[in-house]
């Protein structure tokens, strides 16, 4: 941002401030991991220690998987998140393409609705959607977890903006080569839009892996719990006293996204920024 490097004093000051900030930001993570390694006896002591004297990692993590069906929760999380993303692409990409590149009656009206939809958070429509699912007897099912999210006006908007920048010539070339409109979506637009699809994918996966509100509302039985529900359930189940296994469970739930983030930081930050700015 600046045209030259900071002086030594300013540089040192920058590091001091940022180090303090970073320490605060990362403290809960450190405490979580540290606690997940300690035996109960070392956790409930009024002393600030990070490394355990006696390691109880194996016990805590085993407990996290055995006390509650954690594996099942994780699997549900993967399943729901993947299904939502796959269906979002399947439903929203063709619509985005049509809005960006085809002339058809009602296009402007549809786009206006999409823009309006951008302003509405899910919480606002939760009650009627719940009532609808209730009437269809779909509450407490994978369908209830996935279906309301298959439509993403945000995804449509984002992909449309991206498709607008794809040259019309490319689409015309495909038409001349004999690719159908639906073929153009999948054979030409999708591969061209991989950066935008990735950004949207990161946004979608992060949002739905972490979502607590909707699963809390529509899920009744443990076999459908997603990871956030699983952690909340674990906490209630153990009356919040067995902190070692609880912190192990929290670590397990956080780990997939955090690992993915650490491996592809640039992608994630770009994805979140991109989707954040367009929102």
């Amino acid at each position: 941002m600046t045209t030259r490097e900071l002086g030594p004093i300013a540089g040192a000051l920058r590091h001091i401030i940022l180090m303090v900030g970073a320490a605060v930001m990362i403290a809960p993570f450190v405490w979580m991991v540290a606690t997940s390694l300690k035996p109960q006896g070392e956790i409930l002591v009024a002393e600030l220690r990070f490394l355990p004297e006696r390691w109880a990692a194996l016990h805590n993590y085993t407990m996290a998987f055995t006390r509650v069906p954690m594996l099942r929760f994780l699997l549900n999380g993967v399943l729901v998140t993947a299904a939502i993303f796959a269906l979002q692409i399947l439903v929203n990409l063709p619509c985005a393409y049509a809005l960006a590149k085809l002339r058809f009656r009602g296009r402007n009206a549809l786009f206006a609705v999409v823009l309006l939809g951008l302003l509405i958070p899910l919480h606002a429509t939760a009650i009627p959607i719940y009532i609808l699912l209730h009437m269809l007897d779909l509450v407490n099912s994978y369908t209830a977890l996935v279906l309301p999210f298959t439509i993403s006006v945000f995804g449509i908007f984002l992909m449309r903006q991206f498709f607008m920048s794809v040259p019309n010539d490319l689409i015309d070339a495909a038409r001349i080569d004999g690719v159908s409109e639906i073929g153009i979506v999948w054979r030409i637009m999708l591969p061209t839009a991989i950066p935008a699809v990735t950004a949207f994918g990161i946004f979608s996966v992060v949002a739905h892996w972490n979502d607590y509100f909707w699963p809390l509302i529509v899920v009744r039985t443990k076999d459908l719990y997603t990871p956030p529900l699983g952690v909340a359930f674990f906490r209630l189940n153990d009356a919040g006293t067995e902190y070692g296994p609880l912190m192990a469970a929290a670590t397990i739930v956080i780990l997939p996204l955090v690992t993915a983030f650490l491996l592809a930081q640039r992608r994630f930050i770009e994805g979140v920024t991109f989707t954040g700015l367009k929102r």
Partner: peptide, 17 residues
């Protein structure tokens, strides 16, 4: 990376933490 980490972490798990 450090400052961004909480954005990625599952809020419900972090709430318990």
């Amino acid at each position: 990376t450090i400052f961004f980490l909480p954005v990625m972490a599952t809020l419900i798990a972090m709430a318990v933490v």
